[in-house]
Amino acid sequence: MKEQISNYQQILGKLESKASLKQEIYRNTVDVFAVAKKALSKLASALHQDYSQKDPSVEVAYKDTHQFEAELKFSGDMLLLSMHSNVFNFEEGHRIYSSSYIKSNPSLSYCGVIYVHNFLADSIKYNRLADEGSLVARILINKEKKFLVEGDGQLGFLYEAFSEADINEEILTNILELAILNCMDTDLQLPPYASVKDITLHQKQTTLAASGYPTGKRLGYLFKSELQQNNNL
């Protein structure tokens, strides 16, 4: 009977230390994601206002797709902002555990996640399911609303440790602006002619059905068979 009580008390203790903790982090991430959506919407409005008169053919548009996703279309690129509904911890041996901040309270390493992906706008428009996007950055928020960012370019080092201040709209705007610049600096590259010279009838029919060649932002265009070959290398 004592063992059963002990096990039960352990369950209650873990509900307090894990379940309640994760719910708090989830609420924090929802709050931050709402601010991120607001920042992205304002950024879209400013870009549209400042550039549409110069070249109205360059479309800049914001769309709040659903609770956990929003998108910014700027010309041929799409920035997708999404929030994961779960809470995560870092893998064993991650550098984060060596920081005094985490050593002082291990529960501070648990985080909610907001992703920033880059896709081609046509990938979304034509629903080309074989197309590949790239993760530009992920924003991690803990129970104290402190944050860090993992990403490409400047986003790989500017916010690499948990912040002393809470994340806010100004910081999120800077992160989003850097993400957009990263997208714009990554151009589509034609693959070697020989690698796309041969095509089966099935591949061509699939291509037509998908309204274009399966395309990745960093890969140029590749056929499905070639994508599989590359993945196996």
Results as ranks from 00 to 15, higher is better:
K2P: 08
E3K: 14
I5A: 11
S6P: 00
S17D: 12
S17F: 03
K18R: 10
L21Q: 05
E24C: 11
R27I: 12
F33L: 04
A34L: 13
K38D: 12
A39G: 05
S41L: 04
S45T: 10
S45N: 10
L47P: 00
D50C: 06
D50Q: 15
P56C: 08
P56Y: 09
S57K: 14
V58I: 15
A61Y: 08
H66E: 09
A70E: 05
L72A: 06
M78K: 13
L79H: 03
L80P: 00
L81S: 10
M83Y: 05
S85V: 07
V87F: 03
F88S: 12
F88Y: 15
N89C: 04
N89R: 07
E92F: 00
Y97T: 00
S99Y: 02
S100M: 05
K103G: 05
Y110T: 03
I114P: 01
F119A: 04
A130F: 13
G133I: 09
G133Y: 07
V136R: 09
I141D: 06
I141P: 06
L148A: 05
Q154K: 14
F157V: 06
Y159C: 02
E160F: 10
A161M: 08
S163I: 09
L172V: 04
L176N: 00
N182G: 13
L188H: 15
Q189D: 11
L190Y: 11
P192L: 03
A194T: 13
K197G: 02
Q205I: 14
A209I: 12
A210W: 04
S211G: 05
K217H: 07
L222T: 05
S225Q: 07
E226T: 11
E226K: 14
Q228K: 11
N230W: 04
L233H: 10
